[in-house]
Design a protein around this nucleic acid. Structure first.
Lengths: 223, 223
DNA sequence: TTGCACTAATTAACCAGTTAGTTAGATTAT
DNA sequence: ATAATCTAACTAACTGGTTAATTAGTGCAA
């Protein structure tokens, strides 16, 4: 019976295994035994590091969303002009999700769990991650509109649409694969999606442009 | 204790209660006791009408998606020109989801469950409902492009984006409510969303309008 | 020799599914 | 008509497999 495997490693292994299990099965469908097995750790160790299943789930959510916040804030804190910044934000958000494909599922699942009383985590998540990002992107849109660069879109709805296009693509990929005849998650298809999202958003947001030509957008669309 | 409550009523009550329970909790989180209680029926009756929980879940999905297919095909079968038809399709789809708000959640949940082997239903659902709709909308987009009415978008990605904007809004409403300061599900907000989606899609899809020279696309934006 | 990291074994609760019926109305026999 | 029989519709109570969580420890390092 071992003892020392470096505590940080064990904790991290649990978190990672839990993230996978929760994203695939939701909190109700997730099995603590499966998490322990995947983390190559005794099940009781989950309860040594985390109070209970719900707390472990909360820790998984925090680690997921804090990574995302860091990613997009690097862009939001930069000082690009509105056009370039909104595209950079979409790109950063897309890239984060694309390289952490368990997150869109975690996010969707938590969103649907948020009926009142249900989720103990949602208030914290909203306050810590979603609100700050939402506020900044909202300001960015208003700035672009004020400067005559963007169409007069409704910020709340526009943000919702951007998030939808990115998150939904990955969370619905397993079904999409059966509807269309290709795997939507190959690097090439992902790159294509990225271009399509960028194209869709810029076409819907940017005004024909009074000033110079927008260099950022080229086409990204085929057929 | 009575026996006769009209079998059709009981069956329908079970289906309705199950739809609600499954949409709120997923199949793993749903409780058969809760379904029976909500349907005001003994739990054993669920097993009298349906083989097991999984089969009941399948019946719920079928009743949900067949309604949707009927709705949108009424539009897709009509003979409107491409612009009007795609907008009518989006409207019909939106209205169906808006007035059956458990469906977006059922849909999201089933989409995420579709990892290989997992869902017994997904193949049937795709073949019966998703494929036929996808095919028709794809043809519609290609027709619009060929006639120089639409920008040369990628059909698969464009459809994915349309569905995303509609489904995601409703499934993420509980969280959104905490991020913004209003309830996204009041009739007024829903109408607003409908307009925003229509605007977003038409801005991203329609060419500036003149039916000539579709090759020199530069903006594809109106208003 | 204390405290940290960890585990095997166990427990209590939960929950899908079953069983062994009951009830009410329709059908047939008288 | 009316009693006897049948069957669809329905239920109370139970079962056993599953699963989150606990307990009572062991090994090891400082």
């Amino acid at each position: 019976m071992g003892s020392r495997g470096q505590p940080e490693e064990s904790r991290a292994a649990i978190l990672q295994a839990a993230a996978k299990e929760f994203s695939e099965n939701g909190i109700a469908g997730a099995r603590t035994d499966a998490i322990a097995r995947q983390a190559r750790v005794n099940k009781a160790l989950l309860y040594y590091y985390f109070k209970d299943k719900e707390t472990l789930y909360g820790a998984v959510l925090d680690s997921a969303f804090s990574g995302m916040k860091t990613s997009v804030f690097q862009v939001l804190d930069s000082d690009l002009p509105p056009r370039e910044k909104i595209m950079a934000y979409v790109g950063a958000y897309f890239d984060f999700i694309a390289s952490n494909q368990i997150y869109p599922k975690l996010m969707q699942r938590e969103m649907m769990r948020a009926r009142e009383g249900d989720s103990l985590h949602i208030d914290r998540l909203v306050k810590t991650y979603f609100q700050p990002i939402y506020r900044r992107v909202g300001e960015l849109l208003h700035k672009g509109i004020a400067e005559g660069e963007f169409r007069k879109v409704d910020a709340a709805h526009f943000i919702s649409s951007m998030v939808a296009m990115i998150v939904f693509y990955f969370s619905s990929a397993p079904v999409m694969q059966r509807v269309v005849r290709f795997n939507p998650l190959t690097p090439q298809r992902i790159a294509e999606r990225r271009a399509a999202v960028m194209d869709f958003i810029s076409a819907a947001l940017f005004l024909p442009c009074s000033s110079a030509a927008p260099s950022s957008r080229k086409s990204g669309v085929r057929q």
